[in-house]
């Protein structure tokens, strides 16, 4: 009897739990679903048809309009986003790996002090840095160039923090000792031995930094006036601000938003396991 109530109870809670999770899943998917539907519609149908149902399917025509808008500026923005995010994350990951590895594997005076400075850096609100950086960069003439967005993006204190944890866990002392006995210099040991052992965690660091740069908006907004240097986020923001004067831009804002999030979402799903290792390490104290 009591066993049966238990089973019934667990069936009830199972249903409640599933229902709750489905409601949350709908919440997370709704805006993306809306965007997909809207991106396939003609501009005129946006206001006149149900936003959650497909009408005239013309995704490809919308894509054509998007990529030819203002002489193909959108493609330029997409390219810029890729340049900022890929290059910035590659360089940033390398710097983080070198520094984190040294903090994990070498003992030297001031090591813990340096590490706590870096940890403090994790807590610094990066938007607070953007305005003073703008002033410094305008004094040096870097403002309104690729470098203005690229240079600050390569610094990731969180990346160093992760690299230190990963290096400590993934690179055994004995391997380093034997490499040293073979006469390999520290850099050779790092680039030929350690970096391979750290490879999965370097992917994690790369991903975190890639997303941080890809999603960044405030820094490029402060630094750039030239449209041809904009990343996608800033470009779409500008277009979105013009839709009241140029209503036809609305469809391109929608299609452009979809185009810019789809590749990243796919990469996300494919590389899921790397996120989890990073987030797990991030929550270690």
């Amino acid at each position: 009897m009591s066993n049966q109530t238990l089973i019934r109870e667990s069936r009830v809670s199972r249903t409640v739990v599933m229902a709750l999770m489905f409601v949350l899943a709908i919440y997370f998917l709704l805006p993306i679903y809306f965007l997909i539907v809207a991106a396939t519609k003609p501009q005129g149908d946006l206001a006149s048809t149900n936003g959650l149902a497909f009408s005239h399917f013309q995704l490809f025509k919308n894509l054509g309009t998007l990529f030819s808008q203002s002489n193909g500026i959108f493609l330029q923005w997409a390219l810029n986003s890729v340049i900022y995010a890929v290059l910035g994350a590659v360089v940033g990951t390398l710097l983080s790996a070198l520094c984190g590895y040294a903090l994990a594997k070498f003992t030297f005076r001031g090591r813990e002090f340096l590490f706590s400075v870096i940890l403090g850096g994790v807590l610094v609100p990066t938007t607070a840095l953007a305005l003073p950086l703008f002033l410094l960069f305008s004094a040096t003439g870097i403002v309104n160039t690729y470098l203005a967005v690229f240079l600050p993006s390569i610094v990731s204190p969180f990346g160093v923090y992760l690299a230190r944890i990963f290096a400590a866990a993934a690179v055994p002392e004995e391997i380093l000792e034997s490499a040293r006995l073979d006469g390999a210099g520290e850099f050779r040991t790092f680039f030929s031995v350690a970096i391979k052992l750290m490879a999965p965690s370097l992917v994690t660091i790369f991903l975190f930094q890639f997303v941080a740069i890809w999603n960044n908006f405030f820094l490029p907004m402060v630094m750039l006036q030239k449209e041809s240097l904009f990343p996608i986020t800033l470009g779409l923001y500008e277009w979105n601000g013009q839709t009241s004067r140029v209503p036809l831009l609305q469809e391109s804002v929608i299609t452009g938003s979809l185009v810019s999030i789809v590749p990243v979402i796919i990469v996300f799903i494919l590389l899921q396991r790397f996120w989890r290792t990073g987030l797990a390490a991030g929550s270690l104290k």
Binding site: L29, P31, I32, V211, N215, T233, L234, I261
Partner: peptide, 20 residues
């Protein structure tokens, strides 16, 4: 599904929601 929005830049998330 819950983690996916993290891939969406804040600006674009706000644009999506502003339509809603």
């Amino acid at each position: 599904t819950a983690f996916m929005p993290y891939a969406v830049p804040g600006v674009i998330a706000a644009i999506m929601w502003s339509f809603l």
